[in-house]
Amino acid sequence: MLDNIQILIDAPPLLVQVLLDGLLVGAIFALAAYGMALVWGVMNVINLTQGDFVILGGFITVSVAQAGLNPFLGLPVAAVLLFGLGWLLYRSVVYRVVDKDLFISLLATFGLSILLQQLMNQGFGADVQSVRSGLGTWFALGGLVTITQVKVVAFATALVIGALLVWFMKRTRMGQAIRATAQNARAARILGIDTDRVYAVTFALNAAICGAAGALVVMTWIVHPYLGITYTVRAFMIVVVAGLGNLAAVIAAALGLGAAENMAGFILGAEFQLAFVYGLLVVILVWRSWRLARERKVLR
C-alpha cells in the first residue's frame, strides 16, 4: 500500500493517469445519480434498481454490437427500451408503493433489483461483457498518459445528456409538471396535473437515463449481471452528498467519487476498490448524520 503511494509520488504522470481515468468515468456515475435524485425528489422513492438499469443498458448495447451494428447505436436503443421497461415497472409495481412508507418502496425496488439481476443472469449469462468501440487512443505528456478516446466521448456524451435533461425540465410542459409535482404533489394534483402520469414518466425517464449510462459503461468498462448494486450505491452516495435537484453539485460529487475511487483502487489494490466504495458509503452517511445532529432543525 505504501509502495503504491510512493510510486504515485515518484511518477506524477501516473497520478495524472489515475485521476483522469477516474474523472472520465465519474461523468457516467453522474447520470445514474441524476436519475436517482429525480425519482427520489419527485416520487419520494429511493430506487434500488438504478444500477440494474445501467447494467441492462450495457447488455442491450452488447446485443446491438453483436448484431453487427455500430455500438454507439446501442445508446439510443438502450434508452428507448429502458424507457419502456421503466414505464412497465411503474405501472405494474412501483405505483402501488409510491405513497407507502419508505421502507416498503425501498424493499419493493430491492426485490425488483434482484429480479432484474437474475433475469439478466439467465438471459445474458454470468460472464463479464464489454464492447469495443473501435476508437483509438491519444497520448499525452510524452506518451506517459494514455487517454482512450471512447472515455472522452463517453464523458462528453454524459454531459450532453445532462444538458438535454436540464432543457427538458426547464422548457417542456412535462418537465414543468415534474418539477411542480416534486415541490408539492397535492397542490399539483389540485391544479390539474395528472401526477400518476408524471410519476410514470419520471420513473421511465430515469430508467432511460440509466440505460444510456449503461451503454457508455459497457464501451469504457465492463458489465456483469451482479455489478448493478455498485452503481446504485454510487448513485445514492452522490445524491446524499450533492442533495436533490442540484445538477452542478451532482456532477462535482460524481467526478470526485470517480477520482477518489480510482485512486483508492490503485493504492489499496484493485481487489479492494469495491470495498472502498462501500466503506465510503458508510463513512459519508455517518458523517452526514453527525453534521445534521449538530444543527438540528426546528421541532414542534
Binding site: E295, K297, V298, L299, R300
Partner: peptide, 13 residues
C-alpha cells in the same frame, strides 16, 4: 416560544 423550549431541553445548541 417553541424555539426557546427546544433550546432549554437541548434539542439544538
Amino acid at each position: 416560544k417553541t424555539t426557546l423550549f427546544n433550546s432549554i431541553v437541548g434539542h439544538h445548541p
